[in-house]
Design a protein around this nucleic acid. Structure first.
Lengths: 217, 217
DNA sequence: TCGTTTTCTGACCGTATGGTCAGGGTCGAG
DNA sequence: CTCGACCCTGACCATACGGTCAGAAAACGA
C-alpha cells in the first residue's frame, strides 16, 4: 500500500493532532475573528503547546486557510438535496432542511465562512470565482427549469438562493442574538424544528411551490 | 443657550473630527474586524495622527463601542415603517424596503453589527437584553395582532423577524460574495430594485399577506 | 539493538500595536 | 492683549504576538 496510507502509530498521531487543531482553530476563529484569534488561544483549546501547532501548520494563515477550505467543502455538499429531487418543492425544501441542520451542527464553521466573506474573502476569493460560481450557475439552471415547468413562480433564481443562504445561516451566525431574544436560552430541539418549518413554509409558499403530494388540481 | 450647543469654531472642530474618526473606524472595523483593525489604519483613513484619535477616544474599545452604538440607533429607527402602518402588507413591505435601503447605504455598519453579534456581543450584550428585547416584543405583539385579524397566516413572529433581518442584511454582510457571483460587479440600481422586490414578494406571499389595494374579494 | 525519521517543546527573537506624554499651537472670553 | 482652556502630535514605552530553533523524546524499520 502507499506510504501515506499506512495505519501505523505515526500516521494516527498526525491525523488526530491535525483534527484536534483544526477543530480548535475553527472555534477560536469563529469566536474571535482572524485578527482576534491567537495561536496561543488555539493551542490552549487544542491542549497542545504553541510550538506544536507550528509543526503541523507553518503559519496562522495556512491554518486559517485549511479551516476555511474544509468549511467550503461541507457547504457545497449540502446541495445534494437540491439535485436529483423529484420536484421543486422537495428539492428546495430539502435543501433548506439540510442547511438548517448545518447551522445547528456546525455553527462555528458558518461563522468563519461569514467572517471570511464579510472581510472581502482575502483567502478564498479564488474559490468564490471558480467552484462557487460554477455551483451557483448549475443550481440557477435547475431553478429556471422548475420555473419553466410552472412548478414555481417566476423569480430570479439568484435572489432565491441568497434568501435561502441568508435565512438558514442566520440561525448560526446570529445564534447569540437569537439566544438572547429567546430569554438567554439556546433554541430547544422543538424550537429548531419550528424554525425549520417556518422557513420552509414561508419560502415555499413565497415562490408558489406546491407540496409534492398535492399535484395541480 | 446651553454651552454644548454653541457653534464656535472649537465645537465645530470637535464635532467634525469625531465624525471623521467614527466614519473611518466604522469602515476599518467592518473590513478588518475588531482584532484586525489597528488605530494606525483608522488614523490614516481619517487623515489624522494616531495620537489625535486617542485624544478624542481614549481606547480602541471605546471607539468601537461608539461605532456600534451609533449603528444600533439606526437599526432601531428603521422600525418606523412597521409602526403606524395601515395594514400588514404595507408595514412589513415598508420595513423590508427600509432595511434593504440600509444595507445599500450603510453596508459597513451592518457588517460591524454582524461581527459584534457573531463574536458573542461582548460590547452590546446589555443593549440586546434591554433595548432590542423590548423592541422585539413590541413588534411581535403587532404581528400577532395582524395574524388575529387574518391579515397574514399564522406564523411565529420571531421567525418572521429573523427572516427579514437575515435576508435584508445579507445584501450588506455578504455583499462581496454577491458581487463576485454578479460577475465581479456591484449590483446596479436596477438590480438593487429587483432584489428588493424579490425579497418583498417572496416574504409577503410566504405569509399570505394581501397587497393593500387588493382587498379581500 | 541500532540508526534514522518523525514528533515534540521550552526558550527565545523581532516586530507591530495600543497607549502615553511632554510640549507646542490655537481659540475664545474678558 | 492676555490668560486659561482646549487642541494637536512626534517620540516614546511596554506588551503581546507570530514565528524560530536546538535539542530531547518517541516511533519505526532492519
Amino acid at each position: 500500500m502507499a506510504e501515506t496510507d499506512r495505519l501505523n502509530k505515526r500516521n494516527a498521531i498526525r491525523r488526530e493532532n491535525e483534527r484536534v487543531i483544526l477543530s480548535a482553530a475553527e472555534k477560536v476563529f469563529a469566536e474571535a475573528g482572524f485578527g482576534g484569534a491567537t495561536m496561543q488561544l488555539i493551542a490552549d483549546m487544542a491542549g497542545l503547546p504553541k510550538a506544536n501547532l507550528h509543526y503541523y501548520f507553518a503559519t496562522k494563515e495556512e491554518l486559517y486557510r485549511k479551516v476555511v477550505e474544509r468549511i467550503f467543502v461541507i457547504w457545497l455538499q449540502a446541495a445534494d438535496r437540491l439535485d436529483n429531487a423529484p420536484d421543486a418543492a422537495t428539492g428546495i425544501g430539502g435543501y433548506i432542511e439540510a442547511k438548517m441542520e448545518m447551522s445547528r451542527r456546525h455553527p462555528f464553521g458558518s461563522k468563519v465562512w461569514a467572517s471570511e466573506v464579510m472581510h472581502g474573502a482575502p483567502v478564498i476569493q479564488d474559490y468564490l470565482e471558480t467552484a462557487l460560481r460554477d455551483w451557483t450557475e448549475g443550481r440557477i439552471a435547475a431553478i429556471r427549469r422548475w420555473i419553466d415547468e410552472g412548478q414555481i413562480d417566476p423569480i430570479d433564481p439568484r435572489h432565491l438562493l441568497y434568501m435561502i443562504w441568508a435565512t438558514t445561516q442566520h440561525y448560526a451566525d446570529f445564534g447569540h442574538q437569537i439566544e438572547t431574544l429567546n430569554g438567554g436560552r439556546p433554541l430547544s430541539g422543538r424550537q429548531w424544528a419550528e424554525a425549520k418549518e417556518s422557513v420552509k413554509a414561508v419560502i415555499l409558499r413565497g415562490i408558489g411551490a406546491v407540496p409534492a403530494r398535492a399535484g395541480p388540481a
